[in-house]
Amino acid sequence: MTSAVGTDDAPPEEFQSVGGTLERALIWVFIVVPTVALLPGIFFAWGGWIGWRDIVILIAFYAITTTGIGAGYHRCFTHGSFKCRRGLKIALAIAGSMALEGPVIRWVADHRKHHKFSDRDGDPHSPWRYGTTAWAVTKGFLFAHAGWVLWGDERAEPKHYAPDLLNDRDLAMASRQFRVLAVTSLLAPALIGGLWAGSWHGAATGFFWGTLVRIALMHHVTFSINSICHVTGKKPFTARDRSGNVWWLAILSQGESWHNLHHADPTCARHGVLKGQIDINAWLIKRFERLGWAYDVRWPDPARLEKKRAATT
């Protein structure tokens, strides 16, 4: 249940309107710095500068933030694939914020605009925005992957695309506290690594793997849904855009790369609906439902899926 938010409870203006100098600067830092860390990360790993504690911290924070983005920001808050109790709603908003992809209200607004204009004029991140020649698609691919966040000017207006979230006290609070949650996401792996290993070395490696490498991997997997999954992939269902299924991204994205079905049936809680399609986020939503934390889950309708498939044959 949502309630109206008064003036004092509204998210900061830079999260309500498009842009904000500080927000854009932080996004540059959150994307560029971890990405730059990937190359030395390979070197350090080869040289033995990684231990089992670092691997545990990396996997744990990656799983938490990927769930926050996929099950929370995307399936729940953007598309209403399921409803959840207040505790789970807040947890998913926090987990998604710790992925450092922006405040929940900003993220949802951009994604809703993407679906409204998918692969057409107005889409914030279509790889086909410049045309269909090899060079145009290459340029569009890079823009769809990360350029739209770094320098794009077609961001969505939250007041227009996400008024329901602006009127939700919990999600407004999560957006308002994004910077605090971002700092927590940056520093927590180092703190845990240092305390666990009992050394500054443990803190350093925890920060490197649990923060920098984890954020870079998480970001580029998410960005690949916008770029790779709109350029290539199988299309077993009818959609009004170029979205495709990319199987080799399925586990890392926790099922988000079964993108063709998602665009064919956006509110469906399960994206990997065909045999053998692993969808970790759908599995988690099913667990939430059984625990009573999630309800009104929009599971696949066999008749609807068959109708979507029939159009392709």
Rank of each mutant, 00 (worst) to 15 (best):
M1A: 13
A4F: 13
G6Y: 08
D8C: 15
A10H: 06
E14G: 12
A25R: 03
I50W: 14
A60V: 11
A63E: 07
T67S: 00
G68Y: 00
H79Y: 06
C84S: 11
I90S: 02
A99F: 09
L100F: 13
E101G: 10
P103Y: 10
V104R: 00
I105C: 01
W107Q: 03
A109V: 01
D110Q: 10
R112D: 05
R120P: 05
D121E: 15
H125E: 00
W128F: 13
R129G: 03
R129L: 14
L142T: 01
A144N: 02
V149A: 10
L150S: 12
W151A: 07
G152K: 06
D153A: 15
H160G: 11
A162G: 04
P163D: 00
L166M: 12
R179E: 00
A182N: 10
T184Y: 11
A188R: 08
A188P: 01
G193N: 03
A204H: 04
T205S: 13
G206F: 14
G206V: 03
W209R: 04
L217V: 14
H219N: 04
S224Q: 00
I225E: 06
S227L: 07
C229P: 06
G233S: 01
T238S: 12
T238E: 09
G244P: 00
G244Y: 02
G244D: 11
V246T: 01
W247T: 04
W248A: 05
W248K: 04
I251L: 15
L252S: 06
S253Q: 06
Q254T: 03
W258V: 07
L261D: 07
H263G: 05
A264S: 12
P266F: 07
D279P: 03
D279S: 04
A282G: 01
R290G: 07
R290S: 10
W299M: 09
W299Q: 01
P300A: 00
K308L: 14
